[in-house]
Every structure is written in C-alpha cells, then in structure tokens.
Design a protein around this nucleic acid. Structure first.
Lengths: 222, 222
DNA sequence: AGGTCAATTTAGGCACTCCTAAAAACTCCC
DNA sequence: GGGAGTTTTTAGGAGTGCCTAAATTGACCT
C-alpha cells in the first residue's frame, strides 16, 4: 500500500499544508506535474487508507498517520541529500534530484548509518531541517528574502532546493545557509534587490529572492 | 521502457544464461518468485524491445543490447554492495538485499563516484567480479567447492550472495574470498565435507558447499 | 506410435498510476 | 440571485506487472 506514489503525494501534501490550510487538488497536481483528475483519484485512495482527510471540493489535510509517513520520507530525503553532499561530493545543485530517487529505497538501517556517519545533523545542504528519528521537526520562523526592505540585515537560513539552475545561481552569489546578507536597495515595482553578501554586492530579482529564506532580521548599522 | 522489472528480468536471464544455453521460462519464474505465465508475457515484451531473442517453448537468449543492460545493472549492484560494505559498514549478509533496491536508482554520476571512492574495485564483498565501466567481465574459471575430493587444496574465490543466513554461516566458518581451504575428507552418499579453513577444521554439507566457488585447486602436501 | 507428464503459453482478471474530456460544484461579481 | 469562470470530480482509457486456470506443446517412456 505504501507505494512510491503514495509517499510522493504525502510529502507534497505535507509541504503545501504547512500553513495549516487544506491543500487543494490543483496545488498537488502542479507540484507533481500530474493532471488534476489523477490527483482526485489518488486523494480518494489516500483517504480510504486513512492517510488524509478529504472533503470534496475543499481540499485535503494529513491525518496523524499520513503526517508521520510524510516526515519519514522527508527525513530520508534530507539525510540522503546531506550524505551525498558531504560523503560523496555531489554538488549541491544535484543532490535534490538524486535524493528524490533514493528516499524511497532507504532502509531504516541505512538511515541510521547515514545519521551516525553525519553526526546526527539537523539541516540538509540547503538549510532545511531534518526531522529527528522520532519525527519531530521545528518549523523555524523564516521569512522570504524578497520581503525585506533596504537597510535590513539578516542571515540566510534556507534556500529552495528544487531548481538546480537557481541553486547554481545562488552559489555564484554566495547565498548559502548562514551567509550574512544586507539589503542595500530595493527597486520599485517589484524590481531587483541590491544585496551585500559577505563583502561583495550583487543584484537579485524578486522571483529568485522569494526562494531564499532568512532569519535573525534586524536593522543595519545606520 | 527500462523499468525496474525489465532490469530485473535481464539480470536474471544473464545470470541463468552464462552457460550458453537458452534460459527457460520456469527458471526465470523461480528466480524472480513470479508465476510462469507472468514470465511468458514479460519475455514477449522484452522480445519486442529487442532485448532478448525468444523462440516459443525453447527459452530466451539475451541480445547484445540486453546483455549490455544486464551488465550495467550488475555493475551497479556489485559496486553498491561493496560501497555499503566498505564505506557504510553494512554486514556482508545484508548488502545484497539493499543493493537489489539501490541498483535501480543509481545514476551514472553516482556510479563513477562510488567507483572512485572504492579505487576501481574488481570484485564485490562476495567475490563476484564487478564489470568494468565499459562493461567487460572476466568470467573466471571457478569450480564449486562441493566438487572437490579429499586431499585437495584451493582458494575461495566467490560465495553465493543470495541467502543471508547461508552467508552468516560461511562467515562463521571463515569461508571468505581468498581464504585457503583444504578438503580433509568427503563422506560418501553426498555426505558432508570436512574442511580445514585457515587453521580450524569444520564440516559443511554438500548443499552449502555448492554455493562456495574456489580457484587454484591443487593436490595438498601428501 | 501412443500416452503421460511437465513445461509453456493463452485467456481473462486485478491493482496501480497515469491520461483526456465532459460534467458538476464552487466563487465571485454585478 | 444569476452568470461567468475556475476548480474539482467523474467517466472512460491506456500501460505495466502481477495472478490463476485452462489449453497447448514438447519430451520422454513404453
């Protein structure tokens, strides 16, 4: 019953539902690149398996069981990402795609071994938190870089890991987790932001900046 | 087209067909724990994909393309086995089962990284040869330990990797690749063999001994 | 040669995951 | 309150991979 497709759906539903609201059919369809009709069918199946609660036309919410499975898969995914990055030297823009496949075949035993080799890490190479063995995650208060205004200083906490080209771009700019950024200027009409990352300046468009999440936001030295 | 099932079938057909004879439907069914009718259907599909040549009621033979794919999968399998064993400390009786899953999700990039980390190894933890990157394998002349007679000395080259319990038994006896064995006695009526492995003596039944392959067989010092 | 038995293939189904296209429900705005 | 437009669901199919049971073929033995 716990097929790869089921795991993928649960993972996506977890991610889309973090704000607490029910997850829509079309949102899932978009994330999985699948037709809407397909999602309806699958959601019904997940409901009969008691992994989600589904109200017709209203979206789905994970049950406790569904949430646990989602977190297991996410733990696998992020541990594998970090393992590939740290232990095998896979570049950070490629670990996500590999981990998408590995997450479904990782045994508990291997999970533990990776965890131990990596020293029970808490975040993956993109800054996303790795759920603990008993599936706790702390959802930190992170805000999008795109929402900051000129003069603010912050620390990069996490970057979106899905788009490899964007990750290469972030790497070029120095936008890694823990990097310090200062917003020098924000052009009007959703224009680009001028940043100081470390000691170098750069400009970044709003769409890309929406995939960078920061923490510890404060006003810069005047 | 290259599904996991296709890869599994090709791998098994390769293995069963090493003696040169066409591979029977039932042999495949047995190996894959699948009904005979299922195999017929899959074999037909493989034939339309030009991966095997199939003569009705006569068995199948791999085409060159099919053989290449089989060797790729086998290379993946054995590299993964060795990686799990060497780099992750997975006990040798468990690496086979894990590798069965990993072999299908390993990218070329990861394959190369494992190969490099391991120093371009030539055999897996059970002594099976790892095909080279351009898919050459040397099928060495190995004979079953079960076929030796009293007084012969040989070197263990390979042990069957499918049965975890049997592997644990071999480990207990010291029957690893490269171990020296001397046949002290062979009981009649397919009875057990008494061996000297290293410095200790032990008895092993014929069925188990059929899964140990040796090389460099010679007469012992009289 | 004929019969028996085993191996193989055929036939009909089932579960899963996906698709497209049409119908139904919801939302929102006038 | 009634469209218009979007979202969701329903309906009908397709491909893969598995099953069982019945029919066929091949092999072997007398």
């Amino acid at each position: 019953m716990r097929t790869q497709a089921v795991e993928d759906y649960l993972k996506v539903i977890y991610d889309l539902g973090r704000n607490g609201a029910p997850v829509t059919t079309s949102a899932i369809a978009g994330r999985l690149s699948v037709a809407a009709g397909t999602v309806t069918g699958m959601v019904k199946k997940l409901a009969t398996l008691n992994l989600v609660a589904h109200e017709s036309y209203r979206g789905v919410v994970l049950t406790e069981t569904g949430r646990k499975i989602a977190l297991e898969v996410i733990r696998h995914h992020r541990l594998v990402e970090l393992y590939l990055f740290e232990a095998m030297g896979v570049p950070w823009d490629r670990v996500h795609a590999e981990a998408e496949k590995w997450e479904h075949v990782l045994s508990e035993d291997l999970e533990d071994r990776m965890d131990e080799i990596l020293g029970s890490p808490t975040t993956d190479p993109h800054g996303s938190p790795i759920p603990t063995r008993d599936l706790e995650v702390e959802e930190c208060d992170r805000e999008a870089l795109a929402g900051l205004v000129a003069g603010q200083i912050a620390t990069v906490a996490e970057v979106g890991d899905e788009d490899a080209a964007m990750l290469r771009y972030f790497a070029e700019l120095g936008l890694f987790p823990d990097a310090a950024v200062e917003v020098l200027e924000v052009a009007p009409f959703d224009g680009p932001m001028t940043l100081k990352v470390g000691r170098t300046e750069c400009a970044i468009g709003k769409p890309a900046a929406a995939h960078v999440f920061v923490t510890n936001v404060r006003e810069g030295a005047a």
